[in-house]
């Protein structure tokens, strides 16, 4: 039986149980494991803007700052013992060369404010930019829960990123599209935290296939609030 997420009155957080642990889904796109004092974010894609800019695209490069400011707020809110970044934290292996000094300093401050920090490797960042504190790993285990970048790379119960799930919903006379958490009994997919990270439809075989054998819920982030739905 999948426990029902109970929205808080402000709907910016939803508390539920996953793999026997109390977890809090946050409308900022982060996940807090209350029993373990761990904050999880995924797919920051830092310096995605400058990646395009370096290729002649005049894209505004505020994305790193935006992502970091939201990350700082999340860390400040939960004050976790450990932060796990579930991979693709940097958009590419040269992101560290492009990051503005002020942004690098901001990131260093955020990392320094937490006792422990784990960077999981992702397909975009097989090498984590040097110069930032924290452990680098392919996977992390906390109690019963496995953490990894791609959900295919770990055994359940697991918490993973990579796919940037996003759900389209048809409402009366209109539709919306919003990033979401996807959670089932023993799998939890994180939405992308990065400002310029797009999304993949939850209907896509890549995501739907992961949950073919068990019911799952989509918790949408829409207008800084959370909305829980059953899978269609």
């Amino acid at each position: 039986m999948l426990p029902s997420p109970r929205p808080s009155p402000c709907q910016t957080q939803i508390e539920t149980v996953f793999a026997g642990r109390t977890i809090v889904l946050d409308a900022c796109g982060a996940l807090f494991l209350a029993d373990d004092d761990i904050l999880v974010v995924s797919d920051l894609h830092l310096e995605k803007g400058s990646y395009f800019a370096a290729r002649g695209n005049p894209i505004p490069r505020h994305d790193t700052r935006d992502t970091l400011m939201r990350l700082a707020a999340a860390v400040d809110c939960y004050r976790p013992r450990l932060v796990i970044c579930l991979g693709d934290s940097f958009h590419d292996v040269r992101a560290g060369e492009r990051i503005a000094r002020a942004d690098a300093a901001l990131l260093a401050d955020i990392v320094a404010s937490v006792a422990d920090w784990v960077w999981l490797r992702g397909n975009h960042d097989p090498d984590i930019a040097p110069g930032f504190r924290g452990r680098v790993a392919d996977a992390h285990i906390a109690g019963p829960v496995n953490f990894c970048h791609r959900p295919e790379d770990g055994l359940p119960p697991l918490i993973a990123g990579h796919y940037h799930p996003k759900r389209r919903m048809r409402l009366v006379g209109q539709h919306i599209s919003a990033p979401c958490f996807v959670l089932s009994r023993d799998r939890l997919l994180m939405p992308a935290f990065g400002a310029y990270a797009g999304g993949l439809s939850t209907n896509d075989e890549a995501i739907a296939g992961l949950f073919a054998d068990q019911p799952c819920q989509h918790v949408l982030i829409y207008r800084n609030k959370l909305w829980a739905f059953a899978q269609t």
């Binding site: 995605k48 803007g49 395009f52 894209i59 505004p60 505020h62 994305d63 700052r65 935006d66 400002a195 310029y196 990270a197 797009g198 999304g199």
Partner: peptide, 20 residues
């Protein structure tokens, strides 16, 4: 894959450079 969703750019611009 080579394009950033313009909606995301729009949001970031409004927050960080509203007179862009």
């Amino acid at each position: 894959q080579l394009t950033v969703n313009t909606n995301l750019i729009y949001d970031v611009l409004r927050r960080h450079e509203p007179d862009h």
